Computed example of a mutant assay.
Amino acid sequence: MLKCKDIVARSSDYIEGELSGWARANYKVHLFMCTHCRRYLRHVQVAAQAAAKVAKRSVSDEQASHLASNIQKAASEKPDGDVNP
């Protein structure tokens, strides 16, 4: 079974659909069992969607800085009672 650090390392491949059938199945099994990794993956997906929206429009330096700050803050949050994946 995959460990949390494996989920983090392969999150981009999972989101982009680049994992093989077995790797994707193993990834989904871990997500089914691990609340913290599901939360982490949601954060990554939200950040990717926000970045895609920002890329489509012009933003001020202040807005870009604010977005980057929020992404860094979300990425550094540690789940209660568990090790950060």
Score class of each variant (00 low, 15 high):
residue 1 M to A: 10
residue 1 M to K: 08
residue 1 M to L: 08
residue 2 L to H: 01
residue 3 K to R: 08
residue 6 D to W: 01
residue 8 V to G: 02
residue 8 V to H: 05
residue 9 A to F: 00
residue 9 A to L: 08
residue 11 S to Y: 04
residue 11 S to D: 07
residue 11 S to R: 13
residue 13 D to V: 02
residue 14 Y to W: 05
residue 15 I to V: 12
residue 15 I to Q: 09
residue 16 E to M: 10
residue 18 E to T: 06
residue 19 L to K: 03
residue 19 L to I: 04
residue 21 G to E: 14
residue 22 W to H: 05
residue 24 R to G: 00
residue 25 A to H: 03
residue 26 N to T: 08
residue 26 N to V: 03
residue 27 Y to E: 06
residue 28 K to W: 03
residue 30 H to Y: 01
residue 31 L to W: 09
residue 32 F to R: 08
residue 33 M to T: 06
residue 33 M to F: 09
residue 33 M to C: 07
residue 34 C to T: 02
residue 34 C to W: 03
residue 34 C to F: 02
residue 35 T to K: 15
residue 35 T to E: 06
residue 36 H to N: 14
residue 37 C to N: 05
residue 38 R to C: 09
residue 39 R to Y: 09
residue 40 Y to Q: 05
residue 42 R to S: 14
residue 43 H to N: 14
residue 43 H to S: 06
residue 44 V to H: 10
residue 46 V to M: 14
residue 48 A to E: 12
residue 48 A to K: 15
residue 49 Q to Y: 09
residue 50 A to H: 09
residue 50 A to W: 09
residue 50 A to G: 13
residue 51 A to W: 05
residue 51 A to Y: 07
residue 54 V to A: 15
residue 55 A to V: 01
residue 55 A to S: 12
residue 55 A to K: 14
residue 56 K to S: 11
residue 56 K to Y: 00
residue 57 R to F: 04
residue 57 R to V: 10
residue 57 R to Y: 02
residue 58 S to E: 15
residue 59 V to G: 00
residue 60 S to Q: 05
residue 61 D to L: 05
residue 62 E to S: 13
residue 64 A to Q: 13
residue 64 A to D: 12
residue 64 A to Y: 10
residue 64 A to L: 15
residue 64 A to P: 01
residue 64 A to V: 07
residue 65 S to F: 03
residue 65 S to P: 02
residue 66 H to P: 00
residue 67 L to H: 12
residue 67 L to M: 12
residue 68 A to E: 14
residue 68 A to M: 11
residue 68 A to I: 06
residue 69 S to A: 14
residue 69 S to F: 12
residue 71 I to V: 15
residue 71 I to E: 05
residue 71 I to N: 04
residue 71 I to K: 02
residue 72 Q to W: 11
residue 72 Q to F: 11
residue 74 A to Q: 13
residue 74 A to N: 14
residue 74 A to T: 12
residue 75 A to S: 13
residue 79 P to V: 02
residue 79 P to S: 01
residue 79 P to A: 06
residue 81 G to L: 06
residue 81 G to A: 03
residue 81 G to R: 07
residue 83 V to Y: 04
residue 84 N to V: 00
residue 85 P to E: 01
residue 85 P to F: 03
